[in-house]
């Protein structure tokens, strides 16, 4: 059975989808990612979809759900590399991927995630300081 590899780089997980996704492969990736976030304590998830020729409602839902689940598990998700034709089709289909952060390529995605992780680390300190001051 096909499985999408998940690479760990520092405190981020990197997934590059290079196959035409079957529904069950997409669901398995969603589960695998959630498990790996918990195992590794990763703070960021980068999903590269530059090789995907289409994103239909099922794959779109997988992406949205993954982003929502990772947020609950204290990790931020960024989807990178969406082809222009895919973006046009997604919007016309009515899928907006609300709540999913996107970047044009892997480089920008990593920068976006790193910034977010730093900000949240600082934000976390502030909250803790306030709490202790009370």
């Amino acid at each position: 059975m096909e499985r999408i590899p998940i690479l760990r780089i520092g405190n981020m997980l990197l997934v590059s989808i290079q196959v035409d996704l079957q529904d069950h492969t997409a669901l398995m990736l969603q589960d695998d990612l959630s498990n790996r976030i918990v195992e590794t304590g990763a703070k960021g998830v980068l999903i590269d979809i530059s090789a995907l020729e289409i994103v239909d409602s099922f794959i779109g839902r997988m992406i949205s759900t993954t982003a929502a689940v990772s947020r609950v598990l204290d990790a931020e998700t960024v989807v990178v590399g969406m082809q222009p034709a895919v973006a046009i089709t997604l919007v016309e289909l009515g899928l907006t991927l609300s709540g999913v952060r996107t970047a044009l390529d892997v480089d920008r995605g990593i920068r976006l995630l790193s910034r977010g992780i730093d900000d949240r680390a600082r934000g976390g300190d502030v909250i803790r300081d306030d709490y202790l001051a009370e």
């Binding site: 020729e53 289409i54 239909d56 222009p84 034709a85 895919v86 046009i88 089709t89 289909l93």
Partner: peptide, 9 residues
């Protein structure tokens, strides 16, 4: 390419 993508989707 856009029309291909729409039809395939």
């Amino acid at each position: 390419l856009v029309d291909q993508t729409k039809l395939v989707t």
